[in-house]
Design a protein around this nucleic acid. Structure first.
Lengths: 214, 214
DNA sequence: TTTGGCATGTAATCCGTTACATGATTAG
DNA sequence: CTAATCATGTAACGGATTACATGCCAAA
C-alpha cells in the first residue's frame, strides 16, 4: 500500500521530536497514544530510521545513563527542523489506498458455486448474504471507532486543556469522526439496497456475463 | 502500506477472471476502468502473480496465436474458484492506513521557525496558514473525486444496464461518494476552525510545550 | 513511415510487518 | 521472587512501485 514512496516514517519522528528530545521507546509510546488512529509505526521502522536520520545530521543522539542502562536520546537539529518544515508545507501525495472491503463487495455477484442450483440461492451462501455480513461487520467497526474517537477527544480536552497544539489534534479526530459517521450511513443505505436486491434476485437469477470496459 | 499481509493482488485477479478468461494486459485495463477508484495494480505485480497462481493450479494458461503474437490467456480453475470463494467470505483484515494529510495537520502547531518573531505570524508561513492550504487542496481533490464517481456511475448505468452485478458495482461507487461528501463537509468545518484559531493566535502566541501522553 | 496501442515481462529498490533476541529495572 | 515494563535492536520476509527492456501490429 500504500507502499512505494519516500519514507514518511522519518517525518513522523521528526515531528514528534520537534517539541522535545526523546528515545525510540518513548516515540513508539507517543505514537501509540497520539496519532495511532491514523498512523502506526513498528520497532523495525523506528530504530533504523532514527539511525538514518542521525547519519544525515537531522538528529543528534546523546547517550544518557539511567542506572546501568544507556538510553539513546535523540534531539532534532536545525537541519532536521528545516527538513520537517519543507515536508509540512509540501503537497500531500495523492494515493489510492486499496480497499479490501470494496473489492469483496465488487465481487458480490459471484455466487458460491457449490450450492448454485435450480432452487435459487440458499440463505447464507449467496453473494448478497456474504456482502451483508461484511457490511454489518464493517458497521460495527465504524461504531467502535466512533466511540474510540469520542473517548480520545474527551481525554485530550481534559489532559491537554489550553495546549496551543490542541486544536490541531482535535482536527485529526474530527476527520475520523466525520468519516466514521458517513461510513455508518453508507452501511445502512447499502444494507437496505442489498435487502431489496435479495428479494428481486430470488425471483429471477441470470448467469453473470463478463465484465468489460468501454 | 499497507504492506505486510497476504498478497491481495491474487484475489483481484481471480475475481476478474471469474467471469471470463483474459490476458494480463486485459486485466490491467479492466482494473483501470472498473475498480481503479479503490484498487490499483501495476505490471510488476500482475504478471508474477499470474504465474504464481498458475503454478498453484488456481489458473490455467493457454497460448493463443494472434497474428504473429502469442497471447497468454488465463482461465480460472475450480480450485481457483474455491480459493476466491473462501476469500470473499473471510473477514476483512482491519487496517489503519497511514494518512499523510492528518500527520501534517497534527503538526500544524509547529511554526515555521524562520519568521517566528515578535510581530506575530506572517501570513503564509504560520502553521495555521499551512494547514489551510493543505485542507483547501484536499477539498478540491474530494470534489474532483465526487465528479469522477458521478461520471463513472452514469457510464455504468448506461453501459451495464441490467447487468446482474451492477448493483454491487454501484455500492462501491456509493462508498466513495459518501466518503467524499463527508470529507468536503469536514474540510469546511476545519477551514472555519482554522480561521477562528488564526484570529485567536495573532493576539496571544505561546511557545508550544511538549506533547506527552498519559 | 511513424506513432500509438497491444503485449509481456524483469530488475532494483524500498517500505513495512513480524518474529526473533536480549537484558535491565521496578513494582508488587 | 517474579512479572510487567523499559529499552534496544536485527533478520527475514513479502509486498508494491517504478523503471527498464523489448517488440509486434494497425492506423494515420
Amino acid at each position: 500500500m500504500a507502499g512505494g514512496r519516500i519514507n514518511q516514517t522519518q517525518f513522523a519522528l521528526l515531528g514528534l521530536l520537534d517539541s522535545k528530545p526523546r528515545t525510540g521507546y518513548e516515540l513508539k509510546q507517543l505514537i501509540g497514544c497520539s496519532i495511532a488512529h491514523f498512523w502506526r509505526e513498528g520497532w523495525g521502522q523506528i530504530y533504523p530510521t532514527l539511525k538514518k536520520l542521525e547519519s544525515e545530521k537531522l538528529l543528534t543522539r546523546s547517550v544518557v545513563k539511567h542506572g546501568h542502562r544507556a538510553r539513546q536520546v535523540y534531539r532534532i537539529t536545525r537541519a532536521g527542523r528545516a527538513r520537517l518544515q519543507a515536508w509540512l508545507a509540501s503537497p500531500v501525495s495523492p494515493e489510492v489506498p486499496r480497499n479490501e472491503l470494496l473489492l469483496k463487495l465488487f465481487f458480490g455477484g459471484i455466487g458460491s458455486g457449490t450450492t448454485a442450483g435450480a432452487q435459487g440461492n440458499a440463505a447464507g451462501t449467496s453473494g448478497v448474504e456474504r456482502c451483508r455480513r461484511q457490511v454489518a461487520v464493517y458497521r460495527e467497526q465504524q461504531e467502535r471507532l466512533q466511540a474510540g474517537y469520542a473517548a480520545l477527544e474527551a481525554k485530550l480536552r481534559a489532559t491537554a486543556q489550553g495546549h496551543p497544539h490542541l486544536p490541531f489534534w482535535l482536527i485529526t479526530l474530527s476527520y475520523g469522526q466525520c468519516r466514521a459517521q458517513a461510513m455508518c450511513a453508507w452501511c445502512d443505505e447499502t444494507l437496505k439496497t442489498l435487502a431489496e436486491f435479495d428479494r428481486a434476485e430470488r425471483t429471477e437469477t441470470r448467469p453473470g456475463d463478463g465484465i468489460d470496459c468501454k
